[in-house]
Design a binder for these strands. Structure first.
Length: 342
RNA sequence: CGGAAGACAGCCU
């Protein structure tokens, strides 16, 4: 039994859900052993990531039979998360209700589900109920709830949460709260508040940097954003895909051709380019706006994935630059490669 | 370290 569970966990940690499911099936068929709780949690996560509804339901049935949801809050929380990732919020809520005890993670999983599906009011209600039941929020909880406040532009509520988290002394140590706050203030046009939060964080990670920078871009401060990107690099924080996309947007607004190419090179060096259609699309768009279609074409050629989005971006680029012959060629080419225009 | 968490581009309307 022990070695079967180890094998199962091994596959799950290696992100080989198919093998894991096969092992699990054999264990079920043999019918003589129990899947360990940690393995069960990982199985549920694998279903969520794989979007495997059938296996998810099967696991739910098994756990009902064994009373696992009631007895183990890890399993319950993971199942809430799985259903929420499936988009089945009613199911997620049912699981939550069927649990015998709720901790901060199970509450937060449900709140996160509501937030993810834009049920802002439900999320806020849920948060209130959680506090009524005297479960203390943690950084993840605040981050979720702040996202809800931000989306409905409830800055009053957001400020209250800001103060509350501050009273608990959670701001410095939880960058997720900081990032959510910066984002909220930026989206509400309160640039100074956002900057204040950023400056108050003990260590800023790539997300808090990127949120701040995006905020300046959204509010029209392209030069400020560009300056911050350089500062971020100087402090040794590495780009991620969001940062690159944001930087490209700035360069595009300012028509800084050299900077676009520089970002392109850095994105490639950090491996952000090859597996990310968003980065590639933004890059091609930036080149198009800068009138550098040959560079855009090079990016396209290097990119391993072909989908209609990528094709469309390229074709639009040629169209914007008045290169209509290329547009026609590419439309044909695209269909030859089995991609139909939309 | 068996569970939850923060930023989501371009085009068009």
């Amino acid at each position: 039994e022990y070695s079967w569970n180890s094998l199962l966990i091994g596959y799950l940690k290696n992100h080989e859900p198919k093998n894991a499911f096969a092992v699990h099936k054999r264990m079920e068929d043999l019918g003589t052993m129990n899947v360990s709780d940690p393995a069960f949690v990982l199985l549920l996560k694998a279903c969520a990531e794989d979007y495997d509804f059938g296996k998810g339901y099967e696991l739910h049935n098994i756990s009902t039979r064994l009373g696992l949801v009631e007895s183990n809050v890890f399993i319950g929380s993971t199942m809430i998360d799985m259903y929420s990732k499936f988009g089945l919020l009613m199911e997620a809520k049912q699981v939550f209700i069927s649990m015998s005890a709720h901790d901060v993670v199970s509450w937060t999983a449900l709140i996160a589900g509501y937030v993810e599906h834009k049920c802002w009011m439900e999320a806020l209600d849920c948060f209130q109920k959680m506090q009524q039941e005297c479960v203390s929020p943690n950084g993840a909880t605040y981050a979720c709830v702040l996202r809800a406040c931000c989306s409905i532009r409830d800055i009053t509520r957001g400020r209250e949460l800001h103060a509350e988290a501050g009273r608990w002394g959670m701001l410095e140590s939880h960058s997720s709260i900081g990032s959510a706050l910066i984002d909220m203030y930026m989206k509400c046009g309160l640039l100074n508040c956002a900057q204040e939060v950023f400056d108050s964080l003990i260590s800023n990670d790539v997300v808090s940097w990127t949120v701040l920078i995006s905020g300046y871009v959204e509010n029209g401060f392209d030069y400020k954003a560009l300056h911050l990107i350089e500062q971020m690099q100087a402090e040794g924080v590495f780009y991620n895909a969001f940062t690159v996309v944001c930087g490209l947007r700035v360069c595009c607004n300012l028509l800084f051709r050299n900077k676009v190419q520089q970002l392109h090179m850095e994105a490639e060096r950090q491996g952000l380019f090859e597996d990310n259609p968003l980065v590639c699309g933004t890059l091609m768009n930036a080149y198009a706006k800068c009138g550098l279609m040959d560079k855009g074409r090079q990016a396209f050629d290097k990119f391993p994935v072909r989908n209609s989005n990528i094709w469309t971006t390229l074709i639009l680029g040629y169209a914007e630059n008045g290169l209509f012959e290329e547009v026609c060629d590419l439309l044909n080419h695209m269909e030859l490669e089995g991609c139909s225009p939309d």
